[in-house]
Design a protein around this nucleic acid. Structure first.
Lengths: 143, 143
DNA sequence: CAGTATCCTTGCGGATACTG
DNA sequence: CAGTATCCGCAAGGATACTG
């Protein structure tokens, strides 16, 4: 979805979209939706998805090496969560010397693809976000 | 981005997209990006954005009434966070009887628009997510 | 190599009571 | 009406040490 498409969307389009979504939304689904979307806000999930999207199939250590600052514990946790939601596939070679590789599932790839517009938009507007926050914080400092 | 577009994206397309994103990504931006994306995984943020997107401009109480289960505290917190990031605008009428209305900013609307494909995709695939989780949990129960 | 096991801090989300 | 002020439980995230 590029900027032209964005500008051409009216209030009614939004209403229609949102309404359609909410019509098919049971209470259960709402929780599920937020849990899946939570991967987007997690400290490491998107990094893992992105890394696997770019490099294909990697070992635990190789992922960690490409993600600055992640600890073993958090990398394992993140991979488990993503695996649980079927976004990442764990390939256990079950050798004497432990050997495991991870790759994106089809679902993981589709999530990545749908994240990209959001992602690029945020990066493109980083300055405006920072400005908004600064203004907000200054306004609320005198409290 | 519809399904046709999704299917037509190759591994190289993903790489190109992701690479472009990461090239323009400083350490700061990464934190910011995750914080903005965190709205997607929050308990109430998306509901507020969606509600304002559909109804336009509403008062505190009206938003709360349309969102089942939210407490005053969490609604206020959520609105503050969204306002801080410039996704929601707070209109204070500053009357003797307190009167405040909220509406989506342009940025908020753009976020909503970019969330919809992700949102519908998750809802459409709710069954497969649940299946994946169930399988995962069963496999890891014998631990 | 690919993890567990512990311990710790922080912030989310909720319940309840109070206020300009 | 539109919030604050407290208090609470829980999970995220991190640091460090240990293991099949």
């Amino acid at each position: 979805m590029d900027d032209t498409a964005v500008r051409s969307l009216s209030q009614e389009d939004i209403l229609r979209y949102s309404q359609t979504v909410c019509d098919g939304l049971r209470e259960d689904d709402d929780g599920l939706r937020r849990e899946v979307l939570a991967h987007a806000g997690n400290r490491w999930s998107l990094g893992v998805i992105h890394t696997l999207g770019v490099y294909g199939q990697l070992r635990h250590t190789e992922i960690g090496r490409r993600m600055h600052g992640v600890t073993q514990r958090m990398l394992t946790r993140t991979l488990r969560h993503l695996e649980r939601d079927g976004l990442v596939i764990r390939h256990d070679f079950d050798e004497v010397v432990p050997h495991v590789e991870y790759s994106l599932s089809d679902a993981g790839l589709e999530l990545l693809i749908r994240m990209v517009p959001l992602w690029t938009w945020i990066v493109d507007n980083a300055a405006s976000f920072r400005q908004s926050r600064q203004a907000f914080d200054e306004k609320n400092d005198d409290a």
